[in-house]
């Protein structure tokens, strides 16, 4: 059998297994309020998806979280470059990044709610979670550039831009991809958590909060399923884009 098809079938079998476990557990509990079944959740999801508000909610949440993540990626790469070039910047920023990584996200959400408007908090929080990961990986990528290749660029007098495009960027790209892989999920979850606590209008977090408030467990599961699906799709799309930019660089840098 084609290895790709075999792998896909195995993954499908695993998914079916866990969905069956869920269905059996729901049947055993027998109360939709505590654990709704697969069918009820799917019906609710389809019902939600047939309303314009559902799509508007998804779009606004995606916009908030992606704005935060992409801003953090840009800032993370820039601070990575800065701390690579300047020892002072490294000494100043390293403890800040460590602090960002080790402080509970809830503390930042509450603080951000005091400082910022409720619409901006999920953007800020998603970015805050992603920033240290992108920074650390960019810094590691820059530190790992082969100094012999930089000497080569110096001997052949490559212009700065050419050195960046041909040597620095391909060296950093695999690290950036690894950062995105772990940071996307992190940013997405933190952004939704911030929405739950700040309940901005048209947000998945607000919908989850209200479902919990009115004990609409099936709706809570339906929104959670939407979040998981979205997270999966967005990660796929963004990593595919990064792959497109640096396929060749990654393949041969890692070989």
């Amino acid at each position: 059998m084609n290895p790709a098809l075999s792998k896909a079938l195995r993954r499908l079998a695993v998914a079916v297994f866990w969905l069956m476990v869920w269905q059996l557990a729901a049947a055993a509990v027998g109360k939709e309020l505590l654990l709704p079944g697969l069918e009820a959740v799917l019906k609710k999801l389809i019902a939600l998806a047939s309303t314009g508000a559902f799509w508007r909610t998804l779009a606004r949440t995606i916009l908030r979280v992606l704005t935060g993540i992409l801003s953090a990626v840009v800032l993370g790469v820039l601070t990575g470059l800065l701390t690579h070039k300047s020892r002072l910047a490294r000494e100043l920023l390293s403890p800040v990044m460590t602090l960002l990584k080790s402080t509970p996200v809830a503390s930042f959400i509450i603080l951000a709610l005091v400082w910022l408007g409720r619409d901006a908090v999920p953007v800020f929080i998603a970015g805050l979670m992603v920033l240290p990961v992108v920074w650390a990986n960019t810094a590691a990528g820059l530190a790992g550039i082969d100094p012999q290749l930089l000497e080569l660029a110096s001997v052949y007098r490559f212009p700065r831009m050419k050195t960046f495009r041909r040597i620095v960027w391909p060296s950093v790209l695999p690290h950036l991809r690894a950062a995105l892989r772990s940071a996307l999920g992190l940013g997405w979850k933190a952004g939704i958590a911030a929405e739950v606590l700040t309940v901005p209008p048209y947000s998945i977090g607000k919908s989850i909060y209200e479902a919990k408030l009115y004990l609409e467990t099936t709706e809570l599961f339906a929104w959670t399923a939407a979040v998981v699906l979205l997270s999966f799709l967005i990660e796929r799309v963004i990593l595919r884009l990064v792959d497109g930019i640096g396929r060749k660089e990654r393949a041969h840098a890692e070989s």
Binding site: Y156, P170, A251, H252
Partner: peptide
């Protein structure tokens, strides 16, 4: 115009 051949080939692995 200066060129060099080092002891190691120093080729860019992605090219």
């Amino acid at each position: 115009r200066i060129a060099a051949v080092f002891q190691e080939p120093r080729l860019l692995p992605w090219l």
